[in-house]
Structures are given as structure tokens and as C-alpha cells.
């Protein structure tokens, strides 16, 4: 599909983790307010997730944009499926859609 070496790692990350956030910085130390917002939403619902710091490599930074065909970071994947960026996550959390989707996919058990 492409020769970007990051693609294989991205595919592996989303295949082996139920919830993955590709973000700037880490969940402990986000380097961007939009990334921090997504982490905050997931923490709020007590959803475990893998954080991938795209700033750690240029291949990853550009790779995730090409992989998802989405020009901005953060990006949320659930069960291998692209959910969206910060705006979408926030909107979905606000109207309950995110919780429902996480429950439907079996990654959120809390009420």
C-alpha cells in the first residue's frame, strides 16, 4: 500500500489494542491541548487505552496522517476503527454517543 515504515507499526498498534490514541506527547504529559482533551475524556470514562506519541518519530507523525487520511492529531481508534479527532470525540462524549459506542464494542464496562 505504501512504503512508509510507520504503517506496519500503526496497524499493529490498532490490531493489538482496543483503544489507541495517536497524540502529541504521552497520556501523562500531553504536548498539545487537543491531545490532552482526548486523554481527559477517556480517563473520565475510565477507559484504558494505549497512547502513541507521534512526536517520537517523523515517520509516525506523517504516517498516521496518511494512514487515516486525516490531517490532524490527535486521532482515536477503537477496535481497529478510526473514530475521529478531538472535535468528534468531544461532541460524541457530550451527547453520550461515545459511551454507547465504547459499551457496544465492549471496551467500557462501568455504568
Amino acid at each position: 500500500m505504501t512504503d512508509n515504515p510507520a504503517f506496519q507499526q500503526i496497524q499493529n498498534d490498532i490490531d493489538t489494542n482496543d483503544v489507541v490514541v495517536f497524540m502529541k506527547g504521552t497520556s501523562q504529559f500531553p504536548q498539545c491541548g487537543f491531545s490532552a482533551a482526548v486523554v481527559q475524556v477517556l480517563n473520565h470514562f475510565g477507559v484504558p487505552f494505549k497512547d502513541v506519541n507521534v512526536l517520537a518519530s517523523d515517520d509516525m507523525r506523517q504516517g498516521i496522517k496518511d494512514f487515516s487520511n486525516w490531517p490532524t492529531i490527535p486521532q482515536l481508534y477503537v477496535k481497529g476503527e478510526f473514530v475521529g479527532g478531538c472535535d468528534i470525540v468531544r461532541e460524541m462524549a457530550a451527547n453520550g454517543e461515545l459511551q454507547q459506542m465504547l459499551k457496544d464494542k465492549g471496551v467500557m464496562t462501568a455504568a
Partner: peptide
């Protein structure tokens, strides 16, 4: 939502 944002991203590529 994803489709909508992609439409905008494409427009402002």
C-alpha cells in the same frame, strides 16, 4: 461526523 470533517479537510487541503 468523520465524512463531514473529511469534506472540509479536502476543501482546505
Amino acid at each position: 461526523r468523520v465524512q463531514r470533517q473529511r469534506m472540509v479537510f479536502d476543501t482546505l487541503k
